[in-house]
């Protein structure tokens, strides 16, 4: 494909499915204080559609964590921190989702998280593909069922098949950033592997969305 088809997920980050940048390194350890339920634990739900929706709701803990939502804003301005306050300094995505002319995201956000050794903000987050989600992938202000529908809609998910979404969630380095967000930043719940497994199970069970 020539037209880049981006899927915006965790962090500010959009990644092509065929991207060579995804990392094969072991998943980050995650936050033990906020585990994700295992796929198996949903086995007691007899109805498949119901089970599917419940699994997505669990995955939603990640999707709706500040680590993901901050860069899926409804405006073209990212938010920051667990309180999801407006990005300081004021920043806009601009057309290419990489910041305005002359001030790319990479001005501050390097290829990796950067420790500051400051007494306040302990690190500046970074990733080689740091950018803002395109507007059609905005999540802020949406309910989880709305996000779920959006995720299934190729017009609003970067022209992805569900299989591509599973791969993306499981393996993408930028998605993985949510569990390695740098010092001073809370992690997304669970692990990327656990999250990926939930998404995979959700798709296998028919990708049903929770009811509003």
């Amino acid at each position: 494909m020539t037209k880049p088809s981006h899927l915006a997920l965790c962090a500010a980050v959009l990644v092509t499915a065929a991207s060579a940048t995804w990392s094969a390194t072991a998943p980050a350890p995650g936050d033990p204080a906020r585990p994700l339920r295992s796929v198996a634990s949903f086995g007691t739900i007899r109805d498949q559609a119901e089970r599917s929706a419940a699994i997505f709701a669990e995955a939603g803990k990640v999707i709706q964590s500040p680590r993901c939502l901050n860069c899926h804003p409804a405006t073209r301005t990212p938010t920051q921190g667990d309180a999801m306050r407006p990005h300081v300094p004021f920043m806009v995505s601009s057309d290419g989702n990489h910041g305005p002319k002359g001030l790319p995201c990479a001005t501050c956000h390097g290829a990796d998280n950067s420790r500051t050794f400051a007494a306040g903000i302990a690190s500046v987050p970074g990733n080689a593909h740091w950018q803002l989600a395109p507007i059609e992938m905005a999540w802020q202000g949406l309910t989880l069922p709305q996000i779920c529908e959006q995720l299934k809609d190729p017009k609003r998910n970067g022209s992805r098949s569900l299989a591509q979404i599973v791969t993306h969630m499981n393996t993408d380095h930028l998605v993985g950033w949510a569990w390695e967000p740098g010092e001073g930043r809370s992690k997304a719940p669970g692990t990327q592997a656990g999250f990926g497994a939930l998404i995979e199970a959700w798709v296998k069970t028919g990708a049903h969305c929770p009811r509003a």
């Binding site: 920051q80 300081v88 300094p89």
Partner: peptide, 10 residues
Amino acid sequence: SNFHDQPVVR
């Protein structure tokens, strides 16, 4: 502590 929680005119 810093300019994020002590904003200034930009």
